[in-house]
């Protein structure tokens, strides 16, 4: 069963720490529990989104710089 990573707050979702850097996690990659998978920008600051549990074959449901709401599914993984 797929594990979901939900967005804790509304804003703009970023998959990379900076525009010229690679994404925190590549599509299909594996993450450890507590790993940062993206950033959400709101109120002039950036907030890290972390995976609560480990998983592999991550599939993002939201594009880089996509608009997100609280509770939105950002990614699924196995």
């Amino acid at each position: 069963m797929a594990k979901e990573i939900q967005c804790p707050l509304p804003g703009i979702f970023y998959r990379k720490p900076a525009p010229e850097e690679p994404p925190f996690v590549e599509d299909g990659g594996a993450v450890e529990a507590g790993a940062v998978i993206g950033l959400v920008e709101v109120m002039k600051s950036f907030h890290e989104v972390t995976a609560e549990e480990a998983g592999e074959n991550i599939r993002f449901e939201v594009e880089n710089e996509g608009q997100v709401t609280a509770g939105a599914v950002l990614a699924r993984m196995d």
């Binding site: 804790p8 509304p10 609280a70």
Partner: peptide, 8 residues
């Protein structure tokens, strides 16, 4: 609290 569903 859970996730915000309406308002801010």
């Amino acid at each position: 609290f859970g996730y915000l569903t309406d308002g801010a």
